[in-house]
Design a protein around this nucleic acid. Structure first.
Lengths: 340, 340
DNA sequence: TTGTAGGCGTTATCAC
DNA sequence: GTGATAACGCCTACAA
């Protein structure tokens, strides 16, 4: 049996209350007593029960994280930031994988709230109005990362300016001499990000006086195979609608696209240039290294945690709630070439 | 304020105990009562407090997972299996990243035990004797994955037969006509896996009557850059100790090695063949696709969870404790070619 | 089958 | 500065 607070109290010749204070408000206890208590804790290798503490104090030093799928490559990067920040505040993280299901996501909120988490980070999926009831019910701070809200409940989100990011991609490609630019966009039923990036693409074209051509756009669900297949469709009509560069909505799709191009005898970037999106660790591990736009995953994770912790101690004012756009960055590597 | 068990009880006109039973032992309660209770729970959208339950029942439907680093590519795959199985048993997962530090790992055990987790999955790092005290102290089942124990406390582990796996790699390369086989082995201060794979390499060579040559072996810490640098060192002496194939201790190092080869004007596999290890998702996304040995990450994760759950309900007999070796599989793709 | 009562390990509010 | 004492929300004998 593990030692409890009472065991420590007895050993130190004080009451449980004092041990508790020694733990949480050491300034309120006599230095000598404190010393005794600490020694006792040390000797019994006392580890306070987070569970009991949570029950009593109605908070649990735990954050909940809801991700759509653990195998999404960006997860590790986002988590890195979350972990770094939460550790700094002595918080633990409870992970919940919604497996791309809305019901599972709802359930995630419920379950996590059952664990008295002091906040929930929700990732990547669009929050629609059907989340409102559950959002209302779990009465704890929620923050969004890599996505945004279309629900009634005001929610703050940390993400990049998707439109602007893809605009920058187009601008970059144009600056490298490309005018015939295809796109492999992202599309998921509960995803607004894909649309935003597409919008950025269109804005970019418009800005540079390039006509938007539907036949140059294909969609995929962000994964490798989707990128491959989308490229295949693009390739089928390359005679009629040629392109010298392709921008994609994810690094993974970019890899798929490149593979498809290779399989059809095209070299990247010599024949066709490809741009990724995300700047995941793999982007620099492949040949050609991916030219891509970097999302500040770590920072987003950190900011989300900080926001949550702030929100837990002091309800945020309406003006503090909203979308926080963090800066993205274009990373030049090898998958795009300049054409005359 | 969230509804408590008492609120539900009142609404259903029963006692809290009955609600509790309705939740945990529905077979013990009258069907009609059960119905009433369930309706009440539904209406109040009652979510039992996992915290309180854990305190009272001294278990928490939570598993702890200690990983050395969240950014290790295999993590997602392992977690996938863990999540799948734990979900099946209604367990949640508390994640702890030890950041490759032994102290943090110790702390992980402590903290997780403070959360009353019903078991801990420890990953990837060698468990040495200095873990014994903490292992003894946290009095909960611990299971190892992708590693093994060198501690006194008997521990069960799920992993593959590393020696055999690397032996198979060598056998495969030999069957493809290779005799001059270099290796980029893994080395970490708290890692035995690297040694085992190296051993498999040596056994393989011996078995096929190939002389082991130290100059053909380099070491790295499993990451991309390590693979790159190791290959660079190998290349520096390729005149004196030539090789036609390289096997590596991780897919990531294989990618680094390939990149290094490319940078030095070698083509893979035309000039030199490269083998990975792990079969991570990226292995099939790069060009050339990696020929590699697949670790059954999902199964390992699942088995670990099942073992933990079994152990929680019934202390395992000494004979059940030990190393469980799951089958690996050689995946043939494009990074190795046959030579005459 | 159901209810009562005590306890799980803390924290928080009082007195002292 | 310290010590009782009452929660916190649930589970589990035990009794009815």
């Amino acid at each position: 049996m593990r030692a409890t607070i009472r065991d420590v109290a007895k050993a130190a010749g004080v009451s449980a209350a004092t041990v508790s204070r020694a733990l949480n408000r050491p300034d309120l206890v006599d230095p000598e007593t404190l010393e005794r208590v600490r020694k006792a804790m040390e000797e019994m290798s006392y580890q306070p029960s987070a569970i009991a503490r949570g029950l009593s104090a109605r908070r649990s030093d735990t954050l909940g994280l809801i991700v759509p799928g653990i195998t999404d490559f960006f997860f590790n990067e986002l988590y890195k930031g979350i972990d770094r920040a939460s550790q700094q505040y002595g918080m633990k993280v409870l992970l919940y994988d919604s497996e791309h299901s809305r019901e599972r996501a709802f359930e995630g909120f419920s379950i996590l709230s059952g664990y008295q988490v002091s906040g929930i980070i929700f990732t990547s999926k669009l929050v629609t109005e059907d989340y409102d009831p559950i959002l209302q019910r779990v009465n704890i701070p929620v923050v969004l990362t890599l996505t945004q809200s279309a629900a009634k409940t005001p929610l703050t989100a940390f993400r990049i300016d998707e439109v602007r990011a893809m605009f920058d991609v187009v601008a970059y490609l144009v600056s490298r001499g490309h005018r015939q630019i295809a796109m492999i966009a992202g599309k998921l039923w509960d995803d607004r990000t894909g649309e935003l990036r597409l919008e950025g693409y269109r804005e970019g074209l418009r800005h540079f006086g390039i006509e938007y051509c539907e036949a140059r756009v294909e969609f995929g669900q962000y994964r490798f195979d989707d990128g491959y297949q989308a490229m295949q469709r693009l390739l089928e009509r390359i005679r009629d609608v040629p392109f010298t560069a392709v921008c994609t909505a994810s690094d993974e799709m970019a890899l798929g696209a490149i593979r498809c191009l290779n399989d059809h005898g095209y070299r990247v970037p010599d024949d066709i240039s490809v741009m990724g999106f995300d700047d995941l660790p793999i982007a620099r591990m492949v040949t050609p290294r991916l030219t891509t736009v970097a999302q500040p995953f770590h920072e987003i994770g950190e900011e989300a945690v900080k926001w949550l912790i702030r929100a837990a101690s002091q309800p945020p004012s309406p003006s503090e709630i909203g979308d926080y756009l963090l800066p993205h960055r274009l990373v030049e590597r090898e998958s795009v070439r300049s054409i005359s």
